[in-house]
Every structure is written in C-alpha cells, then in structure tokens.
Amino acid sequence: MKKEFITSYLTFYMKATVELAGDFIKVANPNSILKVIPLGVRNKSIPVNQVSSVDESFKLDLKSFIWGIIFILIGLSSFKSSLFAGVLITIYGAITVLSSFQTIMSLQLTSGGSYDISVVVFEKENLAACKQEIEALIQKRYDNTNVAVHTEKQTEALVEALKNK
C-alpha cells in the first residue's frame, strides 16, 4: 500500500507519501520554505515493531495563518495601485491560510519518540484510511507475537490429537 498526501496547496505537486512495505513503514515528507520553495524530502523507514500506536489530530499552524493574513491584507491594500498584483498577493495569502489548517498523523515509537506527518485538512479521510491500515499492521504484529494465543492453539491441537488416538 502506498498513499500520497498534499502537504500544502501552494506546493500541491510535492506530496508526502506513506508506504507499507513488508515490516516497514516508509515515509517521505517534503520540506519547503514559506510553503512555496521546495527544499527536498525527509525520508524515514520505521520498522513496524517499533511503532506502538498511531494518533491523529488537528492543528493550526499559527505562523502560516498569520503569514497568510498579512499577505491578504497587503493584497487587498494594493488593489488601487495594481489590480493584478493585488489579486496575486491576495490569492497567495488565502491559499496560505487554507494550508495552515492541518491534520497530523503521529507514529508513536516504542523508544518514546514520535514521527509526525502533516497534511492539509482536506486530506483527513485519506489520512484516516492510512492510519487504519497501519493499525491493522500493528495488530497483525501483536497477534503474531502473542505467546498466549499460540500456546493455547498448540494445546488445543495437542489435546485434539490425543483424543483421536
């Protein structure tokens, strides 16, 4: 399974990816300056046995929100001097404000740390589906390592075999 997410409307072409590959969760998260200038990608491979839980939350990036409001005000005030520049700056500000509302998926690690994936709020459903798949992978790992369940199954098989003889 490989899912892609938009991290900012200004850099919609730079997408974060989460891929479940065997026993690893591979994450690629793009970096940018002011949500406009691409700066590369932060890659991380996390073994499933090191993930204790997956959390989902909502966040307002206050710096981006304020930055967007400032650009909206600058754009609106520059309509008199240049209509084109005013519209362009206002649109930039509005998109920055929209991008400041984020949904966060946090992978809680057994070592005590966490790894966050931040996407735009309109990607919430895709992120929730990804969270469910990761939780299913974690549950499968717990089921495979649950000694009590395996011992019980082996005991039942042994008792059944003894009854048949």
Rank of each mutant, 00 (worst) to 15 (best):
K3Q: 11
Y9Q: 01
Y9S: 00
T11S: 08
T11Y: 06
L20A: 03
L20N: 03
A21P: 00
A21S: 11
F24C: 00
V27G: 03
V27I: 12
A28I: 04
N29K: 11
P30V: 07
N31G: 00
K35N: 15
V41A: 08
R42I: 09
N49Y: 14
Q50P: 00
Q50T: 13
E56H: 09
E56Y: 13
L60R: 11
D61M: 02
L62T: 14
I66W: 08
I66H: 04
I70D: 04
F71L: 10
L73P: 03
L73V: 11
G75H: 08
G75W: 11
S77T: 09
S81A: 12
L83E: 12
L83H: 08
F84W: 08
G86S: 04
T90I: 05
T96P: 05
T96K: 10
L98N: 02
S99I: 02
S99G: 05
S100L: 06
F101Y: 12
T103E: 09
M105C: 03
S114D: 11
I117C: 04
I117M: 05
V120A: 02
E125L: 12
E125R: 13
N126G: 13
N126C: 00
L127P: 06
L127M: 12
A129I: 05
K131P: 02
K131L: 03
K131V: 01
E133C: 01
I134G: 01
E135V: 01
A136S: 07
I138Q: 00
R141K: 08
D143S: 09
D143Y: 10
T145P: 00
V149E: 14
H150Y: 14
Q154V: 09
A157M: 13
A157P: 02
L158T: 08
L158D: 12
E160P: 00
E160D: 14
L162E: 14
K163T: 11
N164A: 15
K165R: 13
